[in-house]
Simulated scan of single mutants.
Amino acid sequence: MKKRVLITGAAGFLGSHLCDRFIKEGYHVIGMDNLITGDLKNIEHLFPHEGFEFHHHDVSKYVHVSGGLDYILHFASPASPIDYLKIPIQTLKVGSLGTHNLLGLAMAKKARLLIASTSEVYGDPLVHPQTEEYYGNVNTIGPRGVYDEAKRFQESMTMAYHRYHGLETRIVRIFNTYGPRMRLNDGRVIPAFMGQALRGEDITIFGDGSQTRSFCYVDDQVEGIYRLLLSDYSDPVNIGNPHEISIKDFAQEIIDLTGTDQKVVYQSLPQDDPMQRQPDISRAREVLGWEPKVGRKEGMKLTYDYFKQLSPEELKKSEHKDFSEHSRR
């Protein structure tokens, strides 16, 4: 009998790559998504596969899955600033009600549950790089609080079920991840810069560009998540690439990669935009034997090749006239 895994947020960027990985590993995969931010085109190649089924459902409502489950991976949540600022209530619900529903399902099925947390639980960090022991610096009532606090509550509830009920749980804190299937119009740094380059627009930097980010290629991220799920470790684990770069220097890398000659323009920094973001992955190295393998130059080329295949209509659709209200991660 194949092991069965439920992956929520299956039609999203990271969720779809996880579906691919578990199909490859021989699991029966049940994908679930309400398609608010996900796209069926990310998983349509799996529809003919006998080991894959898809449920169009919002996990903030009662979740029912027939048959047994060995694992649940909870990746259902808006993950980009444009999305969670546009649908803040749904973002809070999927992190709270959705997590509660899936914890109950895991209890009923005696399944192990892995939740997708985020580096955003650290807020605008006062500790650098960020270790799992750092409690964070988060504005609970700021515009980003709907996402940050949803994830922090999600972690708290998951650990409560682990301690009180003895439920098998895992928590991955995901740092900036990129690769094929990202949406060009989701407001995050890489798709935003690449979309502007492909459309021949100036590249927009918020603030003076000195803020830093650390980018992890999706294949490395999926490998880390897979190892964490199968490990016996229940505390949070950072999964990300510790190679840090300033946004200003990264914009120049995009210009060099795309061979374009547009200029860089600057706008004011959005509220609560973190100035530094770099994971300490000592725990992942020690517990999982994991560290990223794909360098930024290689990963960015693979991502750019994916975006170059988009039609002119898709590129035009991805255009946003004003990003000034949105943070970029």
Rank of each mutant, 00 (worst) to 15 (best):
Gln309Trp: 02
Ser311Cys: 04
Phe54His: 03
Ala197Ser: 04
Pro129His: 08
Ser318Glu: 01
Thr303Arg: 06
Thr8His: 09
Leu73Phe: 12
Ser327Tyr: 03
Ile190Val: 15
Pro143His: 08
Asn241Arg: 07
Leu257Thr: 07
Asp39His: 15
Met275Ile: 02
Asn139Lys: 13
Gly224Trp: 07
Val146Pro: 11
Gly68Asp: 15
Gly259Val: 08
Glu25Thr: 06
Gly259Ile: 05
Tyr84Lys: 11
Arg199Tyr: 05
Ile72Asp: 14
Phe193Glu: 08
His45Ser: 11
Val237Ser: 03
Glu223Val: 05
Arg227Phe: 11
Glu325Gln: 09
Leu92Cys: 04
Thr37Leu: 11
Ile23Asn: 07
Arg183Thr: 03
Ile36Phe: 15
Gly299Ile: 01
Tyr217Gly: 03
Asn101Lys: 09
Phe175Gln: 11
Leu230Thr: 08
Val127Gln: 15
Phe175Thr: 04
Pro88Lys: 12
Ile281Pro: 01
His55Pro: 04
Val63Phe: 15
Ala197Val: 03
Ile43Glu: 13
Ile245Val: 04
Leu229Trp: 10
Ile254Cys: 09
Gly98Arg: 02
Leu6Gln: 08
Ser16Asn: 08
Thr140Val: 14
Glu314Lys: 06
Thr140His: 14
Val218Glu: 10
Phe153Arg: 15
His56Tyr: 10
Trp290His: 01
Gln252Tyr: 07
Glu325Pro: 05
Met1Asn: 14
Lys3Pro: 09
Arg296Phe: 05
Val138Met: 03
Glu53Leu: 13
Arg183Ile: 08
His49Pro: 06
Glu298Asn: 02
Met157Thr: 12
His28Val: 01
Phe193Tyr: 14
Glu44Asn: 14
Leu315Ile: 04
Leu35Ser: 11
Asp256Thr: 08
Thr212Asp: 11
Leu46Gln: 08
Lys308Pro: 01
Lys109Ala: 11
Leu230Phe: 13
Glu313Ile: 03
Glu319Gly: 00
Thr158Leu: 07
Ser60Arg: 15
Phe307Asp: 00
Arg144Pro: 02
Arg112Pro: 02
Gln221Arg: 07
Gln252Trp: 05
Leu85Val: 06
Leu228Asp: 02
Phe250Thr: 02
Asp202Met: 12
Arg188Ser: 15
Glu244Gln: 11
Ile239Leu: 09
Tyr122Leu: 06
Lys263Glu: 09
Pro279Gly: 01
Gly195Val: 12
Leu113Gln: 07
Gln196Arg: 10
Gly166Tyr: 05
Ser282Ile: 02
His28Tyr: 15
Tyr178Asp: 01
Phe52Ala: 11
Pro274Asp: 00
Arg183Pro: 06
Ala76Cys: 10
